[in-house]
Design a protein around this nucleic acid. Structure first.
Length: 804
DNA sequence: CAACTCAGGTCA
DNA sequence: GACCTGAGTTGG
């Protein structure tokens, strides 16, 4: 029987964002299923596609239906659940279906495309022969070929002397190793030894080795090391029929399994016991209840998670645990692996493409039943999920900033509904959205108010920089902070200093004329990098040397301004010459594993001070840290962002939790220019509940989330006038369809208006209930295709993290 | 997105 | 006639 298939092709554009129909070749009928990846002809090209539906009858269409060319998977790589989820995701985030499907799989399972040109005749001119050499085929792409060669080859193609071959390759490659098995009995080996010339030393050695090996199997690599024999000797042995080589698939294990030491469940405090009991009941009831587990730092949230996971496993189910990338530290991974051993798969950005793929497959083959991972792990191919946990649920890194712009929390809850399992959102400082839902009873509210070790939270002191600045020993370090640091160092304790870097950078300014060095492509000032001795643009990557004289007035008084970790490090080194400082920021942690190496060093007390940006605020736990200093608490406060108070509060609360976790009491010093600001005052008192009340008030008055939903529309293009015209046009259409209750902010140019020579304009819709809005936005996006020709791009972001 | 088609140009 | 360029169209 003839079968057809609907395929979503790997061409992320508006007009190809629909299933295309292909014929299933007769020999594949019955085997091919939705969720498999296929290669299909698309125009003159061949592209990867996802099979989403099988249809039994030939659709009544006027165009030709082409057959599927190749099937890449033996079994579906996306389950029914994930296929449906991708549909929802595309609608919810206004993204292309293909982008959603790809987002669910490790990058290794995307296709890589290549073009080759193949000669079809031998009668070619001398220069063509030179180009091809001995080969029949050449890679054919504009990047690697000279203009001249490109021209000759194009001509060849036109004359039908060569054809262009389109290649689609699956990037996924499992790693395999060669195993050696002996084929001879000991008696046969003795015979062979006698037959082999005595001075054929290597072969004699190989036979001796095979005798030792017996019936065991060993990797060729290990065998080579043990015997000191070259690979060729083993190949000879294979030819003589002495041994068998076999390819065995090997998982790249990023954490060596040997190191896991089993850890036992801890005894729970009453509040924890209560939380665990409530979650367990819902797991057993298979309910879709969402919990908000609100617990101060050190109250043992992680232990509650581990109990919940254990419960799910006991029900013969699986568990998914999401953590922000930054707190996916070795400490954290150890803890989960220590409890559940090799059942745990870990997915995070530190893994190579291949490692991620291997972990993904372990999950898919049900070899791992517990998944711990960052944002994208929410799509882990787990079956039969018993509980989903999301730690630090307020973290903004759960929202993806590129297509599809999803929030992992929304996806987690959606998956919870499919699997009929509870979702646990945990945080010391919940997002206002979640906390408000807990208030209304949409989520069930669980609280852990006490710290496990019964220790009081560290004392938090504010340093008013307005007063201190005049007499401060350095621009960024006040007298009280310097004294406090000296005190700890004298006691051989450790200090963590955090520089809030958001919206802050060290730029160059001329003190004579006020000239600021800016990026030629983007609208922002260049940031100085001491390690590479250059000025870099953080948006487009433009790089140029640090100027000595002002390009504008030729004065020599051009200096850097602003605060960067490097500058603070230099200041500290001047003030405290004998103290060792570890710096942790984007520059020092760029390389793979650098992050955890730095932390290890600090843990081993190789340095007294750890100086870093936001990334040190989370997840680390060092017993000897008794002082935490925040150098600039309020840089984020001044940003035109309705979440800036929430962010500042969360960050300060979190970093405060880093001080004095063991037997030593900790102290926190916050340097601020706004000591009276409520976010800072309440962070000082670690009073989340009061902050929640105040901030909800502010949001209510301003008409911001969680009282209103928000959608951001951004238009960018190379011609500023056209961009502005388009956004005002959209604004006009919006006023037609929106009710009185909705508010549109803007249109305005984005604060950073020009990036890579493109202009950005935006508007934000705040609304409560707009039944026509989704349909309007969908059509807007579809019609935006016409504008592509005018080089205009339109993006829609639901629930944007901020409006800047 | 990439490739094709078509219209309108240039150049020897 | 051969080739280039840009705008517009199309993919099953």
């Amino acid at each position: 029987m003839q079968q057809f298939a609907e395929v979503i092709v790997d061409v992320p554009t508006q007009q190809t964002d629909q299933p295309y129909t292909y014929e299933i070749p007769p020999d594949l009928v019955g085997q091919i299923q939705p969720g498999m990846r296929v290669i299909v002809p698309f125009g003159t090209r061949r592209v990867l596609g996802f099979l989403v539906r099988v249809i039994e009858h030939k659709p009544d269409v006027s165009f030709e239906i082409k057959p599927i060319e190749e099937v890449l998977d033996l079994a579906p790589v996306l389950s029914d659940e994930l296929l449906q989820l991708s549909d929802w995701l595309a609608k919810w985030t206004f993204s292309f279906k293909i982008s959603c499907l790809q987002a669910m799989l490790p990058a290794a399972m995307r296709a890589s495309y290549g073009k080759k040109i193949r000669l079809t005749t031998t009668e070619v001119s001398a220069d063509v022969k030179l180009l091809f050499g001995e080969k029949q085929e050449l890679p054919f792409d504009t990047k690697n070929l000279s203009a001249r060669a490109f021209r000759t080859l194009s001509k060849l193609n036109r004359e039908n002397k060569a054809e262009i071959v389109y290649e689609v390759r699956d990037r996924a490659q499992s790693k395999s190793i060669t195993m050696i098995t002996g084929l001879l009995t000991p008696a046969q080996i003795t015979q062979e030894k006698a037959k082999t010339r005595i001075n054929a030393l290597r072969l004699q050695q190989l036979l001796d080795f095979l005798l030792d090996l017996g019936s065991a199997r060993l990797s060729q690599k290990d065998a080579e090391v043990q015997t000191g024999l070259a690979a060729s000797v083993f190949t000879q042995g294979q030819k003589k029929g002495w041994l068998k080589k076999s390819q065995v698939e090997e998982y790249r294990d990023p954490y060596s399994t040997a190191e896991i030491s089993k850890t036992e469940p801890q005894k729970l405090k009453p509040a924890q016991t209560k939380a665990v009991a409530e979650i367990e009941t819902e797991i057993k009831k298979q309910s879709e209840q969402v919990f908000l587990l609100q617990g101060v730092t050190g109250s043992g949230k992680t232990e509650v998670y581990l109990y919940a996971i254990a419960c799910a496993l006991a029900q013969k189910k699986t568990a998914l645990m999401l953590v922000p990338e930054i707190s996916l530290t070795p400490q954290m991974v150890h803890r989960v692996r220590g409890r559940f051993g090799s059942n745990v798969a870990v997915l995070h950005s530190g893994l190579s493409e291949g490692e991620k793929y291997d972990e993904w497959r372990r999950i898919e083959r049900k070899e791992a039943t517990v998944v711990v991972g960052a944002r994208s792990a929410v799509f882990a191919p787990l079956d039969n999920i018993g509980v989903i946990i999301m730690d630090e649920e307020h973290e903004t890194s759960y929202k993806q900033e590129s297509m599809p712009e999803y929030h992992a929390r929304d996806v987690a809850i959606k998956r919870g509904q499919w699997h009929h399992c509870p979702v646990v959102l945990g945080s010391a400082t919940p997002s206002l959205e979640s906390r408000a839902r807990a208030q209304k009873g949409v989520y069930r509210w669980l609280r852990l108010d006490e710290r496990i070790n019964g220790q009081p939270l560290p004392a938090v002191k504010l340093v008013n920089m307005q007063d201190e600045l005049k007499r401060a020993p350095a621009v960024d370090i006040s007298g009280p902070l310097l004294e406090a640091i000296k005190e700890r160092i004298a006691r051989n304790e450790q200090v963590v200093l955090m520089l809030n870097r958001r919206g802050y950078s060290s730029f160059i300014m001329c003190r004579e004329c006020g000239f600021v060095l800016k990026c030629p492509n983007c609208d922002i000032s260049l940031t100085m990098h001491m390690d590479s001795h250059s000025m870099k643009c953080h948006y487009c990557g433009h790089e140029e040397p640090i100027p000595n004289i002002c390009p504008s007035c030729h004065s020599k008084k051009i200096r850097y301004y602003g605060t960067g970790t490097e500058k603070v490090q230099q200041e500290l080194e001047k003030l405290l010459p004998d103290v060792s400082i570890l710096r942790m920021d984007v520059d020092t942690t760029k390389r793979k594993g650098a992050h955890s190496r730095l932390l290890q060093k600090f843990g081993a007390k190789e340095a007294n001070i750890l100086l870093g940006t936001q990334m040190i605020a989370k997840g680390l736990d060092f017993p000897d840290v008794t002082l935490v200093g925040v150098l600039n608490a309020d840089t984020a406060l001044s940003l035109p962002n309705f979440r800036s108070a929430e962010r500042t509060f969360q960050l300060l609360t979190q970093v405060s939790g880093r001080a004095g976790r063991a037997d030593k009491t900790g102290e926190v010093l916050i340097q601020t220019f706004n000591p009276e600001h409520y976010a800072i005052q309440l962070a000082k008192n670690q009073n989340y509940e009061q902050f929640f009340g105040m901030e909800m008030n502010m949001r209510h008055r301003g008409g911001y989330p969680p009282y209103f939903f928000t959608i951001q529309i951004v238009i960018n293009g190379t011609n500023e006038a056209e961009v502005a015209k388009k956004i005002f046009e959209v604004n006009g259409q919006l006023t037609q369809i929106l009710s009185q209750q909705a508010v549109v902010l803007g249109p305005t140019p984005k604060p950073i208006m020009r990036v890579n020579n493109r202009f950005y304009y935006q508007l934000v819709i705040k609304y409560k209930n707009e039944p026509k809005l989704d349909q309007f936005l969908k059509e807007l996006l579809q019609n935006s295709q016409q504008d592509m020709r005018r080089n205009l791009q339109l993006t829609i972001d639901r629930d944007p993290v901020d409006f800047i």
